[in-house]
Computed example of a mutant assay.
Amino acid sequence: MAQLDAFFKMLKDTGASDLHLASGCQPMLRLGGRLERIKYKSLENEELKVLLYEIAPERQIAVFESTGDLDFAYAAPGIGRLRCNYYRQERGVAAAFRAIPEIVPTIADLGLPPILGELALRPKGLVLVTGPTGSGKSTTLAAMLRHAADTRRDHIITIEDPIEFLHVSSNCLVNQREVGRDTRSFAAALRGALREDPDIILVGEMRDLETIELALEAAETGHLVLSTLHTVSAAKTIDRVIDVFPGDRQAQIRSALSESLSAVISQTLLKRIDAPGRVLAMELLLATTAVRNLIRENKIFQIPSVIETGKAHGMRTLDDALLELVAAGRIDPVDAWRNAANKGRFAEFAPKSVREGD
């Protein structure tokens, strides 16, 4: 049993989402979105390095020594899986560990809109789950993939860095590939996936032009592609995809995206005030004919208005989701104001001193 497993047990027992270890500091847990110190001594650099290297794959230690960054997944016996990130900082080494549930949650478990299940059953198209780091994107995608695996009879390929949730081949055949271990890069795995008879391809993150281009090609050629981006709204997501490409190609990409896009799910997690933990606020854009036309005609700025008027189709803005959570007494109104796109709708919730200081 690795020495770090005692910390991982504490992570699980307290219900924290993350564990942070840094040279020269006490260990910390993220509970309900806030960091709390563990009653333990400060860890010195060499001491922490020994702890971290005990669980790192041997082939990866040299990578960390040369680059200062490392991502991998670790299965702690009797505790569960963790996503591990090692990095160097001014005082020495540091690490962040994210707890991954052993059982993949369902869409119902997470309280997600049922329409996400319908999106997972579509024969083709591009579905993007977006939001800041730590907003639950991977968990939402995992629930959608579980719904597909339990319902369809198809071939699912995931390309991840690292693999987080472990999926069961229930009705579907599920093959999970890890960048750096099973394949050289997202782009290389995507290129190979098109020759591996997939029906659904999950791309852990669309990081660069080549990966985005291949994901669009896969969606255009009859595959359902699920992926993530670090953007804060549906409109900004579409802009990000298009802006990755050179100016002389953007008209072509707008046309391709208008045809292949199925949905953009933009989400953020906020601290609850009615109970421990955090709650999800979600914006949902569905690629209706009106949305496709706006993308093609480069009128992305009009998309928020289309979402507002598309509630009958299941669409919703982030601001509407925030207002619902405030009305239900689940989040602090000031937090809603801070996360709102149209802060004018929330001005009554934030004191003048807060508004002027933000």
Rank of each mutant, 00 (worst) to 15 (best):
Val306Ala: 05
Leu257Ala: 03
Glu178Gly: 05
Leu166Ile: 12
Met28Trp: 15
Asp239Phe: 07
Gly314Lys: 02
Gly204Lys: 00
Lys39Asp: 13
Lys311Thr: 10
His147Gln: 12
His147Ser: 05
Asp161Lys: 01
Glu65Asn: 12
Leu285Glu: 00
Met282Lys: 06
Leu119Thr: 01
Asn171Ala: 10
Arg122Gln: 14
Arg152Cys: 04
Gln302Arg: 14
Thr231Phe: 03
Ala281Asp: 04
Ile157Ser: 03
Arg30Tyr: 12
Asp199Gln: 07
Glu178Asn: 09
Phe97Gln: 01
Thr268Val: 12
Ala143Asp: 04
Thr140Lys: 01
Glu348Pro: 08
Gly314Leu: 05
Ala62Pro: 04
Ala2Arg: 06
Val63Asn: 04
Arg184Glu: 14
Leu52Asp: 00
Pro105Val: 10
Asn171Arg: 13
Asp69Pro: 02
Leu31Arg: 12
Arg278Phe: 07
Thr228Lys: 00
Ala73Met: 04
Glu44Ser: 10
Arg81Ile: 02
Leu4Lys: 03
Gly78Met: 07
Glu164Lys: 02
Glu65Lys: 12
Val354Thr: 09
Ala2Tyr: 05
Arg59Phe: 13
Arg272Asn: 06
Gly277Val: 10
Lys12Gly: 05
Ile55Asn: 02
Gly357Glu: 06
His167Arg: 03
Asp320Leu: 11
Ser135Lys: 02
Glu205Lys: 03
Phe349Glu: 00
Gln60Val: 08
Glu297Asp: 15
Ser233Phe: 09
Gly277Tyr: 08
Lys271Val: 15
Val63Glu: 10
Asp274Gln: 07
Ile331Met: 04
Gly314Asp: 02
Glu348Ala: 12
Ile38Phe: 07
Glu217Pro: 02
Arg330Thr: 14
Ala256Phe: 08
Leu82Pro: 01
Arg30Gln: 11
Ala99Phe: 11
Glu102Val: 14
Ala290Thr: 10
Gly92Lys: 01
Asp335Cys: 07
Thr237Ala: 05
Leu224Cys: 06
Val264Gln: 00
Arg177Pro: 08
Pro101Cys: 09
His223Ala: 04
Gly310Ser: 06
Ile242His: 04
Thr231Asn: 07
Val326Gln: 09
Glu44Leu: 12
Arg254Ala: 03
Ala62Lys: 12
Glu46Met: 11
Ser169Glu: 12
Glu348Asn: 13
Ser260Pro: 06
Arg181Phe: 14
Val93Trp: 00
Val279Gly: 01
Gly192Leu: 05
Asp69Val: 10
Leu286Asn: 00
Ser42Met: 05
Leu21Ile: 07
Ala321Asp: 15
Glu118Gln: 14
Ala73Leu: 02
Asp319Thr: 15
Pro123Glu: 09
Ala143Asn: 04
Leu285Asn: 02
Ser135Thr: 05
Gln26Thr: 13
Ser233Val: 06
Asp358Met: 10
Glu356Asp: 15
Ala275Thr: 11
Leu31Met: 15
Leu209Asn: 07
Leu121Val: 08
Val93Gly: 00
Gly357His: 14
Pro27Asn: 06
Ala256Val: 11
Leu29Ile: 09
Ile265Ala: 01
Lys41Tyr: 08
Phe301Thr: 14
His167Asp: 05
Arg177Asp: 13
Asp18Phe: 05
Leu43Gln: 03
Ile265Leu: 06
Met315Val: 13
Glu217Ser: 13
Met206Asp: 00
Arg338Glu: 13
Thr14Val: 11
Ala256Glu: 12
Leu322Trp: 11
Arg316Ile: 14
